[in-house]
């Protein structure tokens, strides 16, 4: 049995379980709890060109089987990451995939260029950010805007490039195809779902930013459908993200078409869940005599 997955040329994950961006910070805290070398890969917190302060509090709200966050992409900026955080991550025997974002195409290009350094295996683009030059519409909501952005970043970096798709779009297949045509090596499917919470005693929104993004097991069925749709129209690997908390979720997402999965909110409630998910996935494969992850990817019986 082989749990390895080649998610992009030269990027081999020892198992299909990655940390999701935004819930793993830069790896230091989790490294106090378990050996990060056990992970299929590490995806670090989204980086911008300059440090970002993020949104006002409250920034998180618990929902039924999940949570809404409006952290606002607080991060230390790309330069501080490369200087202060990347050397630490180098000690672990697992690929480091760096998530990044911008508010204009030029910013994406500049961040990607600064991440073209040793110690980074691949880049993951967050395209759920407003494009300030185009009236604030998200890059990931229009196929031609997404195509343009991904093409420009593609020409800047030699690193394998993953595009993390927005879930709330007219047709995610159009977005997936646009990203693939622009040169993406893999697609992460998907991001948090726009959401909000209201306090009926004060008549006010709960979150300081008014709205946020829903994550956790609550969104798993939605993410499954998105992965299922995207897998059927592209020929690059799909990485599932959305509510994964157990090895059973992993198997389900693989069947829907994923080659790997990202675990986010579940690791906030249970930081050791990575280990049980990795071990459970391997045990499932062994029990069902499945020799490779590829034997599961997209093998949903209909």
């Amino acid at each position: 049995m082989d749990t390895r997955v080649e998610i992009a040329k030269g990027v081999v994950l020892k198992n299909p379980v990655l940390s999701a961006s935004g819930t793993f910070a830069y790896g230091e805290e989790f490294s106090e709890i378990f050996d990060l070398s056990l992970l299929g890969g590490i995806i670090t917190k989204g980086l911008s060109l300059k440090p970002k302060k993020g949104n006002p509090c409250p920034r998180v709200f618990e929902t039924t089987a999940g949570m809404i966050n409006s952290i606002g992409l607080e991060n230390i900026g790309v330069d501080a990451f490369v200087q202060e955080k990347l050397p630490f991550l180098g000690q672990f025997y697992t690929p480091v995939i760096v998530n990044f974002f911008g508010n204009e195409e030029e910013e994406y290009e500049q961040v990607a260029a600064r991440l073209d350094v040793d110690g980074i295996s691949a880049l993951e683009m967050n395209v759920s950010c407003p494009n300030v030059k185009k009236g604030g519409i998200e890059f990931g909501k229009e196929p031609d805007i997404l195509y343009s952005l991904v093409s420009r970043v593609r020409s800047i970096t030699r690193k394998p490039l993953f595009v993390k798709l927005s879930p709330m779009v007219k047709d995610i297949r159009e977005m997936a195809l646009a990203a693939q045509e622009a040169g993406a090596d893999a697609l992460t499917c998907a991001n948090t779902i726009p959401a909000m919470a209201i306090d009926e005693t004060t008549w006010r929104p709960v979150l300081g930013n008014i709205t946020g993004g829903l994550s956790g097991p609550a969104i798993k069925p939605v993410a499954l459908k998105l992965v299922f749709d995207v897998y059927q129209c592209v020929n690059i690997p799909v990485i599932a993200s959305g509510g994964i908390a157990t090895y059973r979720d992993v198997i389900q997402f693989l069947l829907a078409g994923a080659s790997a999965v990202e675990v986010g909110s579940a690791s906030l409630r249970d930081p050791m869940c990575f280990i049980s998910i990795i071990e459970g996935t391997a045990a499932y494969m062994k029990e069902h005599s499945i020799e490779s992850v590829a034997e599961l990817t997209g093998k949903l019986i209909i």
Binding site: E29, E32, R59, N69, E74, S267, L268, P271
Partner: peptide, 11 residues
Amino acid sequence: SCGFGVCTGCV
């Protein structure tokens, strides 16, 4: 949310 510093929800 997490209590150990990764989510930056409690700043």
